[in-house]
Design a binder for these strands. Structure first.
Length: 287
DNA sequence: AAGAGGCCCTGATAGC
DNA sequence: TGCTATCAGGGCCTCT
């Protein structure tokens, strides 16, 4: 589900609600996430105050008063919800408000604050919660990841130098988190459409102008998605249950068989598997 | 070493 | 109705 824009929307909404709040209680119902939730996970969180909520790429980072950090990844199907809880009973975990928007299954982790609780729901369990001890370990954790598209390091020369002599196609480059981090399967197709570049184009055949388009449109697509509250394809995104609207702006994603949206183009949007991920592109204007 | 493919997991949907 | 197959927004590991 969540690419950089969706995770950024979650960060913003969490930031408003949980900063300076104290964690009263943590309940883990299923430890078998992508990374096993350790037995002592709860003790790292209980009685901690959240000092900040940050994001890198598709990762959320909650800063705790001890200096520990809680790293959260939503995987494919993870969602975070904030719900009121019955204060009298929350320690016994019996009587809760149940938001109609919150699925009844797969609520793996619940973090209780004074007046509400954070619920992590994730049917496929590709997401994870991980305690990171300090800033150094955090940097270590991310050291192999490439820069975000907004990082000045991600410039035209960086792109050109990485693509040079490479057989790997540009779609796979955009999905490669060690090259640039934060782009996922939806926005990769959208970026290539805006750039008029065929997703199968090999890195070594990308000229300077095309690299410049990648540089510009990567930021453009992600920023527009953030502005619109992200894309809600299947699940809801926001902690409130509200949906983003960027999916209405998709030029190619899930539009196979439809006409290309460029005024002067007669093309039809194609769907093709590239490295087992569905890829959408115009058969005429993406060269 | 680079790059392709398998795999982790559940649920929704399509087709028979 | 109830099977089976396919696909889904991610990323790590293995194999060639």
């Amino acid at each position: 589900m969540p690419e950089l824009p969706e995770v950024e929307i979650v960060r913003q909404s969490l930031n408003k609600k949980i900063i300076q709040k104290s964690i009263k209680k943590v309940i883990v119902r299923n430890r078998n996430l992508r990374i096993k939730v350790p037995q002592n996970f709860e003790k790292f969180l209980e009685n901690q105050i959240i000092s900040d909520v940050d994001r890198f790429s598709k990762y959320l980072i909650l800063f705790l008063s001890t200096g520990n950090k809680l790293l959260i990844h939503l995987g494919m199907s993870g969602t975070i919800h904030l719900l009121k809880h019955d204060k009298k009973n929350f320690l016994t975990n019996t009587s809760f408000y149940n938001s109609p928007k919150l699925p009844s299954k797969h609520n793996h982790i619940e973090i209780f604050f004074d007046k509400f609780k954070l619920v992590y729901n994730d049917p496929r369990r590709f997401g994870f919660f991980e305690i990171i001890k300090d800033q150094y370990s955090l940097e270590k954790r991310f050291e192999k990841l490439g820069p975000e598209p907004f990082n000045p390091k991600f410039d035209i020369n960086y792109i050109r130098n990485n693509l040079r002599n490479k057989k790997k196609n540009i779609k796979n480059f955009l999905l490669d988190q060690n090259f640039v981090s934060g782009i996922g399967n939806i926005y990769a197709s959208e970026i290539l459409y805006l750039s008029k570049i065929n997703p199968n184009k090999e890195g070594k055949f990308m000229d300077k102008i095309e690299c410049k388009k990648i540089f510009t449109n990567t930021k453009l697509v992600l920023l527009n998605a953030i502005k619109r509250g992200g894309s809600s394809i299947k699940d809801f995104k926001h902690i409130s249950g509200n949906k983003g609207s960027f999916q209405k702006k998709f030029k190619v994603y899930q539009r196979e068989g439809s006409r290309c949206k460029r005024k002067d183009c007669e093309g039809i949007i194609q769907k093709k598997n590239i490295s087992n991920r569905s890829t959408f592109f115009c058969n005429i204007c993406q060269k």
